[in-house]
């Protein structure tokens, strides 16, 4: 019987159905948890931009802090996150993206209330070389973007990377392309944002 033409086909179908059923039910049960984890990661990153992370990184704690302090808002078709302090909008996180060395980089950049200062940056997705360009996700690089005055910036060059004169951010050694890609996407997208919204 085993060598008949139909037995292997039927057997394969039966085994596949059984395993797919098991996988589908496990997936169904855990979808919510996984979605929550992913949202939690984004929440944590937005809180990081505004430098208002709660002390422990328990997902529930992060959700509470996020719900309390952050609101989503649309300025001229651009989805931004706003930090609410004393019932007033205190800072904004604006999405920026652009091509990196290997793939596109998506990030949010934090701006203060009157859009005169960059207060933080966080990368949502990036696929740069681990250990070189990938270090843009490390705190030592990201923390350079705290408190950069952009009011007097000339020609829309808000961020100038070392070793150019007047630099305000250090590039990563061995990752020149990634570093300039980040600078470029910040400058371009901030310009577009300011122009389209007319906030400045």
């Amino acid at each position: 019987m085993k060598n008949s033409l139909y037995y292997p086909i039927l057997f394969m179908i039966a085994v596949t159905v059984v395993f797919i059923a098991i996988l589908a039910s496990i997936n169904y049960m855990l979808t919510d948890t996984i979605a929550f984890n992913q949202e939690s990661e984004l929440r944590q990153k937005i809180l990081y931009i505004f430098d208002v992370l709660p002390e422990n990184d328990d997902p529930q704690e992060i959700k509470r802090a996020f719900d309390e302090k952050i609101k989503q808002k649309t300025i001229n078709d651009i989805e931004v996150y706003t930090l609410i302090e004393n019932n007033q909008e205190a800072a904004y996180a604006v999405p920026i993206n652009g091509p990196g060395l290997w793939g596109s980089i998506n990030a949010y950049i934090g701006l203060n209330k009157d859009f005169t200062k960059i207060i933080g940056i966080e990368f949502i997705t990036q696929s740069e070389t681990p250990g070189l360009g990938g270090r843009i996700s490390e705190d030592i690089y990201k923390n350079q973007f705290r408190n950069i005055d952009i009011e007097g910036a000339a020609d829309g060059n808000y961020i100038i990377s070392s070793p150019q004169p007047g630099s305000n951010v250090d590039a990563i050694a061995g990752a020149t392309q990634t570093s300039s890609a980040v600078v470029k996407m910040i400058n371009e997208d901030l310009n577009t944002f300011f122009e389209s919204t007319g906030v400045r």
């Binding site: 496990i26 996984i34 992913q38 939690s40």
Partner: peptide, 23 residues
């Protein structure tokens, strides 16, 4: 074919479990 099907099912279970409980 059957072996690969079985193995991949268990790997997907592990993957889902890690994503849900150890992100």
């Amino acid at each position: 074919m059957v072996q690969v099907l079985i193995i991949s099912s268990f790997v997907i279970i592990v993957d889902i479990y890690l994503k849900a409980y150890m992100p």
